[in-house]
C-alpha cells in the first residue's frame, strides 16, 4: 500500500515537472472525449432518434465506458505501453526486484494526463444517472457502483490481455488497441441500437454489454430482476482469465527472453 502511494506521488512529481505541457495535455485529453461525445450526439440528432433514446441514456452509456477506459489508461499505462517495457529492457529491471510484477508494471507508468477525462466522465455519469433514474432504490445505487467497478475490472482485463500480445510480437502492436479502443468505440453508443447478433458478440466475447446495456435496462425500470444488480461484477471472469494468460506469457518470457 505504501508502495502504491509512493508510485502515485513519484509520477505526479514527474508530471508537474513540466507544468505547461501537462496542462495542455489535460485540456486536449478531455477535449477529445467531448468531441467523441459530440459525434455520438450528432448522429442521434441527425437520425431523429432523440425521441427514442433520451439524452440521459446516451450520456450514461457513454460515460460508463469512458470512465472505465480513462481509469485504465491512467493507471494501466504500463500495460498499455508494455511493448516499450520489453524493448528497452525495463521489464528485466522489474524482474530483478522482489515485488509483485503486476504492481511494478502499474508503477512503471501512471498517466496523470487522463485525470481530466476520468473526472469529466465521472461527472457525466453522476449527472446522467441522476436524471435517468426516476425512483432511486438501494439496488439502483448499488448497481451504479457496480457499473463503475465492473467497467474498471473489464478494461483492466482487456489492457492486460493486450499487453500479453507483446510477449509474442513487438512489431505493429497497434493491433492490440483494437480490443480496448474498439470496445470503447462500440459501447459509447447505447447498445440497444445494435442488432441482437452483434450485442451477443459483445456479451459473450467481449462482455461490454454487462457494464452498460443490461444495467441501464434495470435503471430505467425495464426489468426488476435482482440479478441485474450484480451482473457487472461478472467482468471478474475476464480479469482472471487475462491474468492467467499474462502469466503464461510471462513464463514464455522467462524461458525465451523475448
Amino acid at each position: 500500500m505504501k508502495l502504491i502511494l509512493n508510485y502515485l506521488s513519484i509520477h505526479l512529481k514527474v508530471s508537474l515537472e513540466y507544468r505547461l505541457p501537462f496542462f495542455f495535455s489535460l485540456v486536449s485529453q478531455v477535449l477529445y472525449m467531448f468531441i467523441e461525445l459530440f459525434a455520438v450526439y450528432a448522429l442521434f440528432s441527425k437520425f431523429n432518434l432523440l425521441g427514442v433514446y433520451s439524452i440521459d441514456e446516451i450520456l450514461l452509456s457513454f460515460s460508463t465506458v469512458w470512465f472505465a477506459f480513462a481509469f485504465s489508461e491512467m493507471f494501466l499505462r504500463g500495460f498499455d505501453n508494455f511493448a516499450r517495457l520489453i524493448v528497452n529492457g525495463s521489464l528485466d529491471l522489474l524482474l530483478v526486484r522482489p515485488r509483485n510484477i503486476y504492481l511494478q508494471i502499474f508503477g512503471s507508468d501512471i498517466c496523470y494526463e487522463k485525470l481530466s477525462r476520468l473526472l469529466a466522465a465521472l461527472g457525466l455519469f453522476i449527472y446522467s444517472s441522476g436524471k435517468l433514474i426516476k425512483h432511486f432504490t438501494i439496488g439502483k445505487v448499488l448497481l451504479l457502483g457496480n457499473m463503475l467497478l465492473g467497467g474498471i475490472i473489464l478494461f483492466m482485463g482487456l489492457f492486460i490481455i493486450g499487453a500479453t500480445f507483446c510477449f509474442y510480437t513487438i512489431q505493429g502492436i497497434e493491433v492490440v488497441n483494437v480490443i480496448t479502443d474498439g470496445g470503447k468505440q462500440f459501447a459509447e453508443y447505447p447498445m440497444r441500437i445494435y442488432k441482437k447478433s452483434l450485442r451477443l458478440v459483445f456479451t459473450f466475447v467481449i462482455p461490454i454489454t454487462i457494464i452498460n446495456y443490461y444495467p441501464i435496462d434495470y435503471l430505467m425500470g425495464n426489468t426488476t430482476n435482482i440479478m441485474y444488480i450484480f451482473l457487472p461484477l461478472l467482468t471478474f471472469i475476464v480479469l482472471l482469465l487475462s491474468i492467467n494468460v499474462f502469466n503464461f506469457g510471462l513464463r514464455k518470457y522467462h524461458s525465451t527472453g523475448s
Binding site: F47, V178, F186, I193, K195
Partner: peptide, 18 residues
C-alpha cells in the same frame, strides 16, 4: 480493416432506423 468494419456496423444500425 477492423475500424472500417466497426463503423460499417455502426452506420448500419443507424440507417436501419431512418
Amino acid at each position: 480493416l477492423f475500424w472500417g468494419f466497426l463503423f460499417c456496423l455502426l452506420y448500419e444500425a443507424f440507417y436501419s432506423y431512418a
